[in-house]
Design a protein around this nucleic acid. Structure first.
Lengths: 356, 356
DNA sequence: CTGAAAGCGCTTACAG
DNA sequence: CTGAAAGCGCTTACAG
């Protein structure tokens, strides 16, 4: 915080005095009230410009007991998926005249508590929270004032979730993974792994469910060694590649937890002398920019994080206007983005490619 | 903004009443004053917890005429470079007990004006601005109250800059481009293009200068057709590929404005049947994650945007404590990140590779 | 160590 | 259409 407050702030009182009006009248001008005489308004506006007055919304909000800020707490801003999400949120909030209070947690539950406590002191009207891994509804409630509109994004918060009363926006992980799996099945693959992610994360669990569903519909029961865990990063994933080939027959394809993992697997396979798109098929999830740019381009599930950001902002704005009311849970569609290259068919039957 | 204010806020007065103390005393407890009796303090703290009181920093700041928020206005949050920067800023601000007011402009000068006006109404203590392309110091000054500490990042603001009195943090574009050019020269290239970027953007001008300097030191005068402009995106860059081959002899290498452009060029060359790393050498700038992951991996100039974000936050924090004082201009180092693949030597002399 | 009073910059009834 | 007074939630001298 600054030591010496700068010169002196131009205040509504200054404008009133200069125009020889009461503060109440100037206040009406500021908020565009039709009650004010046009000439008076013009005089005030000229004076405002002349003195370089800037409205102090904090003071106004204090008096009116409202807030036009929304806190946005993101688990990992350096992940393009969440950065895009944040951009979408901010865009929509700004359009609605709200301001975004940003907080990043770096996936640390502890930092999340601190960050939330700090942001809440600024009395946001609502909170959009993309929770750090391992977040717990109980601990969150300790720092969130009751009645604060909250929208949880992307990651469910365990059992108690039903009781939180918070809105939720998620991705259709089940459907997305099912689409990817069906795609590989359609290419003739029968031994399909699910690769990467932490089993206990809700999104991983959901994607695995979609994968299992699709296999089950094709009469296939996944072998235990088709399910390989890894941290959701490229590096970790590359390191887990060998796990796919511990037993024979090995899988011929993998539905990956996300694009980072898929790209890691591509690298890991290359290191083993296998080439994705030639003798192994891979699908991703997220459709990050690299998915299209990598070699080979990655068939993946597209979720449009920016649109999700806009959607999240719209949901919280709605909730601000209707604080009471049953919590809303929304699951956004996932779309298969075929890029004929990473998903080539290679086993058991003659080679052919997906028609996108 | 919300319609119905929720129940009623627990206030410092409530705590004071419950503890049978004056508000002043409770206020002292809140701010950890040593003046308060330990028993009194304990009572107050228990009551605070019991009632779920949350400090209203806005009210406190109003009274104290200070602010602990910093506005962060980013031209393009969906660009990983700026997202990383934002993450670094937020991290450092949060550590210092400040809160980040986020605004995105999407490279629109008009939106930038609106966003700034809106954020300034929240009386931030300072502003970190990564200006939209085409920003003008004069127009910015219209919305920035005089005396507001401002740190401009990454893009200089034209002639008047010297007079703005604003701090500036930039990348060492000149040096970065020089390093890249020298690297290609060392590989034996003599006909080296500078590819992509808008000539009138300050960062492009600086990178071109570094490129020219390096060539000049090697006794080479760049041909006009070695200088190709394009929007700084992958797609636009790919479309400009042909411009490199309009005249013979064509360049054998290109220093690219940034990684996006470089990756676009790689794609554009592939479309023409040329393979980067085999018969053409390319360097990038930024070291975005894709640079390492793309095929072939890209030799590029690394600028560590997250560290730049931390640096920017540190600079503005410092300025908050010393509002007066000459503006600081800082240029961050750039480092060549060699990835033997995209930079192979191919012409005039036998092939060899860079040792990274 | 604690309290009564004034005030930060604004808005909201209530009069006129 | 405009003004005088009170108050949002906090802190700051000033007394005691």
């Amino acid at each position: 915080m600054p030591d010496a407050p700068p010169p002196r702030r131009v205040t509504l009182t200054d404008i009133a005095r200069a125009c020889d009006l009461s503060r109440a009248t100037v206040s009406l001008v500021l908020r565009g009230s039709p009650l004010v005489n046009a000439r008076t308004r013009a005089r005030v506006e000229a004076e405002i410009k002349r003195q370089g007055y800037v409205y102090h919304r904090g003071a106004a909000n204090l008096r009116r007991k409202v807030s036009n800020s929304v806190a946005l707490v993101i688990n990992d801003l350096s992940n393009p998926f969440f950065a895009e999400f944040a951009a979408g949120v901010d865009e929509t909030l700004a359009e609605a005249g709200h301001v975004t209070l940003l907080g990043g947690t770096g996936e640390s539950v502890e930092r999340q508590q601190t960050v939330l406590a700090s942001l809440l002191e600024h009395a946001p009207a609502g909170l959009i929270l993309s929770p750090a891994e391992g977040s717990d509804a109980g601990r969150l409630r300790e720092v969130l004032r009751p009645g604060l509109p909250v929208l949880v994004f992307n990651r469910e918060l365990g059992d108690r979730d039903a009781a939180t009363g918070w809105d939720y926006l998620g991705l259709d992980n089940v459907r997305g993974a099912r689409l990817a799996t069906e795609h590989l099945l359609a290419l003739g693959h029968r031994r399909i792994a699910f690769f990467g992610g932490h089993r206990d994360s809700s999104s991983c669990a959901q994607r695995r469910r979609g994968y299992r569903d699709a296999l089950a519909a094709a009469g296939i029961e996944p072998e235990p060694h088709w399910l390989v865990e890894s941290a959701p990063t490229r590096l970790e994933a590359a390191g887990q590649t060998a796990a796919l080939f511990l037993r024979d027959p090995a899988p011929t394809a993998a539905v990956c937890y996300n694009d980072a993992v898929a790209l890691g697997l591509v690298a890991g396979l290359a290191r083993r002398g296998r080439r994705v798109g030639e003798d192994f098929a891979v699908t991703g999830f997220d459709d990050i920019p690299e998915a299209a740019a990598s070699f080979p381009p990655l068939t993946t599930v597209s979720v449009d994080p920016r649109a999700r950001g806009r959607e999240a902002a719209a949901m919280i704005l709605q909730r601000l206007h209707a604080p009471e009311g049953a919590p809303i849970t929304r699951v956004s569609p996932a779309r298969l983005q075929c890029r004929a290259s990473s998903d080539v068919r290679i086993t058991d039957t003659p080679l052919h490619r997906a028609t996108p």
